[in-house]
Design a protein around this nucleic acid. Sequence first.
DNA 1: CATGAATGAGCATTCATTCAT
DNA 2: CATGAATGAATGCTCATTCAT
Lengths: 206, 206, 206, 206
Amino acid sequence: MTQDSAAETTPDGKRERAKAANRDAILKAAKRVFAELGYEASTVRDIIRGTELASGTFYNYFRSKEEVYEALADDGARRFRPMLRAAREDAGDFEDFIRRALFAYFSFLRGEHVDGATPFTERSPHVRSDTPEMKAVYQEVRASIEEAIVRGMAPAVDADYLTCACIGMATDIGEAMLRRDPPDVQEASAFAAALILGGLAKLPRK
Amino acid sequence: MTQDSAAETTPDGKRERAKAANRDAILKAAKRVFAELGYEASTVRDIIRGTELASGTFYNYFRSKEEVYEALADDGARRFRPMLRAAREDAGDFEDFIRRALFAYFSFLRGEHVDGATPFTERSPHVRSDTPEMKAVYQEVRASIEEAIVRGMAPAVDADYLTCACIGMATDIGEAMLRRDPPDVQEASAFAAALILGGLAKLPRK
Amino acid sequence: MTQDSAAETTPDGKRERAKAANRDAILKAAKRVFAELGYEASTVRDIIRGTELASGTFYNYFRSKEEVYEALADDGARRFRPMLRAAREDAGDFEDFIRRALFAYFSFLRGEHVDGATPFTERSPHVRSDTPEMKAVYQEVRASIEEAIVRGMAPAVDADYLTCACIGMATDIGEAMLRRDPPDVQEASAFAAALILGGLAKLPRK
Amino acid sequence: MTQDSAAETTPDGKRERAKAANRDAILKAAKRVFAELGYEASTVRDIIRGTELASGTFYNYFRSKEEVYEALADDGARRFRPMLRAAREDAGDFEDFIRRALFAYFSFLRGEHVDGATPFTERSPHVRSDTPEMKAVYQEVRASIEEAIVRGMAPAVDADYLTCACIGMATDIGEAMLRRDPPDVQEASAFAAALILGGLAKLPRK
DNA sequence: CATGAATGAGCATTCATTCAT
DNA sequence: CATGAATGAATGCTCATTCAT
């Protein structure tokens, strides 16, 4: 009553910081849990158990497991977007862009990687739940490629298929990279870039 | 009827046929359900609800959801393997093999595709549940590639990465193909083959 | 058709023997299963699994698990009754009868004992399901004691309590005896007889 | 209220009381259900159905039927132990101890008795499910007897058999007593004590 | 009669979500 | 806001019993 009066006049004090901290704690725990158990197998209980918080508190921040997932993905998007933009801006041509983008992606992937993630063949019937980060970059990459084609920086190939090919390839090579010890971003980028750029020339034009 | 009293010596009567039919019904329902809901979200109850059978009957055939999944994968493998083998045998060189294998895979995929499958733009958090077929062919493809490298039919590139690249690319292009109406196997194969073969020459040697 | 015609004219042939054998097989399996798992925990499935027979066949012989249990108890009764009768007939007085009866009971118990029986403290929350044999002798013993009292061969004590005391004591001492290796019928009988007979004299008369 | 803001420092509010009440409700229901149906036949559902609570709530308090049973036994032991201890302390000699202990036991039994319990002439195959109380006192009694023997207060008889004899006798006489209307603790104690003490003198020495 | 697959009611248990404190 | 117990729908699975062969 006496000392706390500040709380009412400065609403951006302890209270706000505690709120942000709780939200972060949940996100952090969710990331770890998703990585360990896979998205579908994870439960809200698993997530809150990974924090110091009580179960009910979860619902003050997120309405469901999906919402946490999406917050995580948004997070990933927010953090990856500048990297991709830099790749585009710094690149001299499309080839350079692809190289830089792949390097950015594999770097990002390694940075985001949580140990304990189920790398590929783990739980019995294998389910690859794309990490939130993966999901986030998906749209970004696709837009970049389409834009390049529109601007005439890339040959007029089937943009949909090319996007899928890049994404699919990067996804699986990324997984393979993470399984290696240590993961070598340079090596993975070089491999993927060579494959895409070498193939690009041979692709049927639209 | 002909020689023995049927009951004891001819176990291929109605009973046997019913058993096979039930097993098939479960597998078929499981396939549909996995496609619709995704593997993790699917329940045993969902599967039996997709048949005319009673709940307990499920357990006369499979011990768990996993076991159905594996039966499905085995099935897929059993049916795809001859196609892959034919590709290998009929192929003049590695290039030819890649083309035939991709064509075989996309054909197979289209054939296996169950309508109602959530192809890509799917339930909120994206889950790339490797279809049983996908999983089954994984090992096949990898072995084929490694064999080609050993035999000197393909350049000595990173086999692990190449396999992942082919698989990842085929997976996502395959999904994209199935979303098109009608799915064009020829087109998808040509695209993927061009990308892989064009890139292959540029790949770093080991 | 040609040779089997005998079956129809001699209905006590193979058929009958097979039937008896099946019934026996079920009873034997049930006894073993009850001993191993306890009555309540045992299932009809457990019992038939212990035979060569098919599940449906069970119901040609017994309507339920209870019915098997009772058949087993009847069996026990049928086999124990002569022993008890002999004890009564050979005994000079009540004291002698008690000694002989206890000896007969512990002998019987040891003879009936199936290894693997849950001796006393076994499955977590302990449940002593009286063996069918136990149940069978219960009534026999009680009748004998009451008759002795009526005939003036035993003091006019509370027959109900005395019966319960004898039965309860014999039950638990019997269990303890079976836990010993080797079970010593003589020792157990001597102990129980001394206790009952020594106490009998001090018992309040009715 | 007095010193601190109640919420955090006074966890003895309504919540705590509700928790204790629920736990008790479950225990009480379990006791009634075990008595009515027997332990093995009872289901967790039966127990919760015997309360006002929802099914899931059971698992907030106990992990299984066994755990409830054990809590019940612990409870019984906790409540009976002082009575047995008092018997030991107040007793002048072993004879006195036996009398007091039996009296205590039969009193306790009557006090614990839940109406509706299937006392003896019970559901078809007789199952002597040691009541939690019974189980709990078993060790107590045995220790008391052994201690008495060690101290020379009782003859050096077979302690194992004597314990079993007392327990078995008390169990069945106790059941018989409860069947009487009204149950006469004094009468049952006198009977059992006379039998044991009279017999004790005649028992073979070790 | 023997067989053994089908049945479906029933049980233990988990989990997202609510809400009184 | 935080808490964490209560809720009850939903799930995996078992089992006694039936019945077509």
